[in-house]
């Protein structure tokens, strides 16, 4: 199905950019933030508090969460990358769940 293929390709491409080489923060840290916000294992502080909070309830993120990560990464860009990585992790995990559910229903119907 075309819509499925287009969206899946874009989701995969987005994940690759998050965890790829084109950023200021370490790629492994971005990947860890992505996974943490999707419910993955704890990571080093102060990144863990921010990534977990973004995953669970981003409206509860505080100035202190962001300042701590900004100080740890050394730049606004670095902090931005961690925030976006976590946000994208939370979104992509939900996309994956939706794909499994839709494919599962398709399998059940066939």
């Amino acid at each position: 199905m075309e819509s499925f293929n287009v969206n899946q390709q874009l989701a995969h491409a987005l994940r690759a950019v998050v965890t790829g080489s084109g950023g200021e923060a370490d790629a492994s840290l971005r990947a860890a933030a992505l996974e943490r916000a999707a419910g993955g294992s704890p990571i080093a502080q102060p990144y863990d508090d921010l990534a977990r909070q973004i995953g669970e309830a981003a409206y509860r993120v505080t100035d202190a969460h962001v300042v701590a990560v900004r100080d740890a990464t050394g730049s606004d860009k670095g902090a931005f990358e961690i925030i976006m990585s976590a946000c994208i992790g939370a979104g992509l995990s939900r996309w994956d769940a939706a794909v499994r559910a839709i494919e599962g229903a398709g399998d059940a119907a066939s």
Binding site: A37, L50, I54, A86, A90, G91, L92, R94, A98
Partner: peptide
Amino acid sequence: AAIFNIVTRYADA
């Protein structure tokens, strides 16, 4: 929904 689960999070963060 996937996209706005991303956007809402960075809007708030």
